[in-house]
Write a protein that binds this DNA or RNA. Structure first.
Length: 367
DNA sequence: CGACGGGACGC
DNA sequence: CGACGGGACGC
């Protein structure tokens, strides 16, 4: 059983909080908050969605369309904005051989739409990817990994916006209210950021458009049991027709600069501890020492992902035993984020081992 | 105590 | 009144 981050000492579990899209700037000044890990050894954020329930093996009974659901094809949601297709491939390849990988980008701007597809050769790898990568924190996001449904027109536009909910209604209450009308993919109740109290507004995403339509017909204007106010149920706004803060021209006049996270700050001459060959042109290589023999790549993703853009991770194994030789490497895109990760994770207790984390040096057995 | 990979230009 | 953290089906 591989170690999970959640099993580590809680006081060391650091999570990156930032509202800014990672642009490689002054991230060191921003706060790192210690996050008390609720026990359980799982990073899965089951409170924010319900898809796990919907994708049990029992749900493989085909729904109306009669389409067989793929057991190798995954949809990945809530990806960090800067994450590239190759980084996604790198992440999912840590589980097993990936057949194909596709990050969905805006057709005109080229910006990531924050989701993509990963298809494995083997169903067991897809299952393992869900078990180990769903809920993984990467930068300021918590990714979601679930089986992709067969693509069809029937599943599009099935997201509902619900308002007028009683303030004491829970996510589970909301699901109970809507579940008679179809298979719920995600649900959410919006809460005030400060008070944490419900805003009486939520979202329900159904599997099928027709399910959403029927829920509107049946529930819009009705008064939930125990409430006095009728709820409004309608289709959610389409994010592509966003009326958000004007996405000014400048934003996609220089998409390249953003894609690569902005200028890299070379520490040359300004610091006594030079990373030296830690920088390999497209990232900063970090050495992680004192990993347990059973360590798998996903552990490194869990450790470093919250601190910023991770390009790749590697657990070094003995060729005969296939056990980790006690160390590994992580390549991060941005120097500032790498520094914070090193400062935060060096000395971190993983299991019963104290990690040593630093920029990679030149040391090697043959040199 | 221990400690820094490995694929591999090839169109 | 309200619009997610977060553009969910191949952009």
């Amino acid at each position: 059983m591989p170690h999970k981050v959640a099993e580590m000492s809680p006081q060391f579990l650091l999570v990156w909080h930032s509202n800014t899209v990672s642009s490689g700037s002054s991230m060191m000044q921003n706060g790192l908050d210690a996050v008390p890990q609720t026990n359980g050894g799982s990073l899965h954020n089951s409170s924010s969605n319900s898809s796990a329930n919907s994708h049990n093996s029992s749900s493989q009974t085909n729904s109306a369309g009669g389409q067989e659901e793929s057991k190798t094809n995954l949809i990945v949601n809530y990806l960090p904005q800067t994450m590239t297709q190759e980084e996604i491939r790198s992440l999912f390849s840590s589980i097993g051989e990936v057949e194909s990988c596709k990050l969905i980008r805006d057709k005109v701007t080229g910006q990531s739409l924050g989701y993509g597809f990963v298809n494995y050769h083997r169903p067991e790898d897809a299952e393992k990817a869900i078990n180990t990568l769903n809920g993984l924190r990467l930068q300021n996001k918590t990714i979601k990994v679930s089986y992709a449904r067969p693509s069809s027109e029937a599943i599009k536009g099935a997201n509902l916006y619900v308002s007028g909910l009683p303030k004491n209604m829970t996510q589970q209450d909301l699901e109970n209210l809507f579940s008679p009308y179809g298979r719920i993919i995600t649900s959410r109740i919006l809460c005030d950021n400060i008070t944490g109290l419900s805003k009486g507004v939520g979202f329900i995403r159904f599997d099928q458009r027709v399910e959403a339509e029927r829920a509107i017909q049946e529930l819009n204007g009705t008064i939930p049991k125990g409430s006095t106010e009728p709820i409004t149920v309608k289709f959610a706004n389409n994010p592509s027709n966003n009326n958000k803060a004007l996405p000014p021209l400048a934003a996609y006049l220089t998409p390249q600069a953003r894609r690569f996270g902005g200028p890299i700050h070379h520490p040359t001459g300004r610091f006594s501890m030079l990373p030296g060959n830690a920088m390999n042109g497209s990232g900063w290589c970090i050495f992680v020492y004192n990993l347990a023999p059973e360590t798998e790549e996903n552990v490194l993703w869990q450790l470093f992902g919250p601190f910023g853009a991770v390009q790749s991770v590697k657990v070094i194994r003995d060729l005969q035993t296939n056990k980790c030789k006690g160390f590994g490497f992580v390549t991060m895109t941005n120097y500032d984020e790498a520094v914070v990760a090193i400062q935060s994770l060096n000395g971190y207790t993983l299991g019963n081992r104290v990690l040593q984390v630093s920029f990679k040096t030149n040391k090697s057995k043959t040199a």
